[in-house]
């Protein structure tokens, strides 16, 4: 594990377009075959479960981005042959934001997004 391999530029990107650019995604096409599972409302903004499934054949890479976070790229995954194109992790969210999943499959990039609300809380029936 060589630390130099870590894509510093991508993790320090300050806009979605910049992050897309650094990972070589350009303007990825929105695809219904990239499925994000995340809560509609975060129970805890510090621990928001996000899962991504890509139903596109030859998926080789999955990235999770949070538009309103200071570092929008949260994590990226390289999917070797024989590994299912499905990952789950948990991320921090400072405020309500779209969560993006970007997928590279057979050399092309695709994406989808889902809004996760971060609320102040304290109400009830």
């Amino acid at each position: 594990l060589a630390q130099a391999a870590w894509n510093k530029e991508a993790f320090e990107a300050k806009s979605l377009d910049a992050a897309f650019g650094v990972i070589g995604a350009g303007k990825p096409a929105e695809s219904g075959d990239v499925v994000i599972t995340a809560p509609d409302i975060a129970e805890n903004g510090a621990v928001v479960p996000v899962g991504v499934v890509s139903n596109i054949p030859k998926t080789e890479y999955i990235a999770i981005m949070i538009e309103k976070n200071p570092n929008m790229l949260a994590a990226s995954f390289t999917i070797p042959d024989g590994t299912v194109a499905e990952v789950q992790t948990r991320v921090k969210m400072g405020q309500t934001s779209d969560v993006y999943a970007v997928v590279k499959a057979d050399g092309k990039f695709y994406m989808s997004k889902k809004e996760v609300k971060v609320t102040l809380g304290g109400c009830g029936g």
């Binding site: 509609d40 409302i41 609300k117 609320t119 102040l120 109400c123 009830g124 029936g125």
Partner: peptide, 25 residues
Amino acid sequence: KTVLEDVADNLFNPDPYYQQGGDMV
């Protein structure tokens, strides 16, 4: 204002999955 807006959205979001089912503060 932020507090009122936040609670109002819990009550009046057109998508029920974003509602928390209490009343306005």
